[in-house]
Design a protein around this nucleic acid. Structure first.
Lengths: 129, 129
DNA sequence: TCAACCGTGCTATTAGTGATAGTACACATA
DNA sequence: TATGTGTACTATCACTAATAGCACGGTTGA
């Protein structure tokens, strides 16, 4: 399910959060689908259950999953609520990236068009223009 | 010159690297301009000189500045060389951000247009289209 | 020449935290 | 009741960010 880099400077639990978040965002994990149990995933990845739990706790805090004691952890259907804050954060990242691309002499508009075309191919969505 | 968050999870030297990198990218610090001496900046920010040195070393390693023992540290005129690797990394970030924006129901194209217009206003550059 | 300033390198120490191991408890379900 | 689930807690180890302090060599100007 995952590939982890135990030697990375980035903490394992953080890598887990990002990977699972990506799976949710890209609809690989669908709404209300059950995530692997803490101990099971820990066994598969041969890491400590506490690390998985920390990742799940963080994902729940960020609004991507919900956990039910005695039942399991599941993908949250609508990541409702604080879309605005998240969107603002993404815009800041985007602004920084575009600035750096311009500094490097690249043409962000071209690159962005290529990326969106790629995403369109992958998922069959309708690119807004 | 800077504002640091000593309580941040992000290391101080890493914050320094990012801030100075932004100043260079945005042309606030111009090519061959001398950066504050390690001990001076440490004094202003009331942090340890070693922390500044670590940030400068990292910036030199990333190709944003160059240091001359006995003289000082300066902004590297052309961040030559590994533009390609950096650009690929930026494209990956961009792809991830656009995916997440789409997931959040936003229209990345609109947002990007707005950001570029903003950058155009700020710096008077010519946006490529 | 010499004092002042510069980057650089090193050791040692402290504080914080990621990750592990192990145990325990409460809830859900067959 | 037995099993599987999330959750909570303590303790320990390892790594590292950050600090303090010292030393060295190159540069510059008086």
């Amino acid at each position: 399910m995952f590939e982890l880099d135990l030697r990375s400077r980035s903490p394992v639990y953080e890598q887990l959060v990002e990977k699972i978040k990506d799976l949710i965002i890209n609809n690989v994990l669908q709404p209300d689908e059950q995530l692997p149990a803490v101990r099971v995933l820990a066994g598969e990845l041969t890491i400590n259950p506490n690390t998985i739990q920390k990742a799940y706790r963080e994902l729940e805090h960020r609004g991507y999953i919900y956990s039910v004691p005695g039942k399991g952890s599941f993908v949250k259907p609508a990541v409702a609520g604080d879309h605005d804050a998240r969107l603002r954060a993404l815009e800041n990242e985007l602004s920084r990236i575009i600035s750096e691309m311009l500094y490097l002499g690249a043409y962000p508009a071209d690159i962005i068009t290529r990326i969106q075309t790629q995403l369109f191919k992958d998922k069959g969505g309708q690119p807004h223009d």
